[in-house]
Nucleic acid binder design. Sequence first.
DNA 1: CCTTCATAGACTTTACCTATCTATAATATC
DNA 2: GATATTATAGATAGGTAAAGTCTATGAAGG
Lengths: 130, 130
Amino acid sequence: MKFTKATNYALHTMLTLVTASPAKPIGVQQLAESQGVSPTYLSKILTKLVKAEMIESISGAHGGYRLSQKKDDITFLDIIHAIEGTASLFECNFVHGDECSIQAVMTEAEGKMQSHLRNTKLADLVQKQP
Amino acid sequence: MKFTKATNYALHTMLTLVTASPAKPIGVQQLAESQGVSPTYLSKILTKLVKAEMIESISGAHGGYRLSQKKDDITFLDIIHAIEGTASLFECNFVHGDECSIQAVMTEAEGKMQSHLRNTKLADLVQKQP
DNA sequence: CCTTCATAGACTTTACCTATCTATAATATC
DNA sequence: GATATTATAGATAGGTAAAGTCTATGAAGG
């Protein structure tokens, strides 16, 4: 039970893109190098963010990635959901009568975490970056 | 990124033990059967709870498992930590200058979830059981 | 002593994460 | 238009942890 490395890559890449000028896209090569990950693997991750319509990709020379939303709209939860999916962290698959009281507690707990991630935007961190 | 099935087994078993009379231990066979899991596998899980000193095991005929704590002391977080470990859900292993602002957000979010799990006791569910 | 029951270790199987490689398509530059 | 640059997609392979089985061992009761 851990967040995947892919989520870490995605969050750091998004923070870079939010901080950077939106005019000029940044190539995956450069993004990958700064994180010590292979470009092909990172591009797989970024493709998910593209499909979630959080960033845009520009093919061809001088292409790369840039934000497609206003940076104030992008929350941690958006990014995490794009990478990890939106399934519940806990799923009791037993056949109880109707509802599982344990499931209810776990879902509520997860909701607390999600609430914090939904209320925190990437832009909140920008001024803290060097 | 999901809670393991083992956690689900552990939580349901603990709920059974909290609900049951503490005088007579319940065998793993019976506990396993009600959850549709093999006794040997479930006993592996329960051994972790024994080592966490949440339950006791009694060997020999008419043996089994029973609570070792007062049921009001047992929180969801205790059980989860006993099974999943206490490592942080998110660990940024990059070498930033000093601290990772992303890590800080993620840790705080996890803290919100943990807080809810720490404040919810198994005993809170007992009266809701049929 | 013999049955019952938990414990431990070795082992397999499965599933997913991580990563690489290659081919393809799109775009700018010359 | 040819070429270089760059993202996308598919196949594939390795690693790791979860999930589960099997067998042997040890403790306790009758």
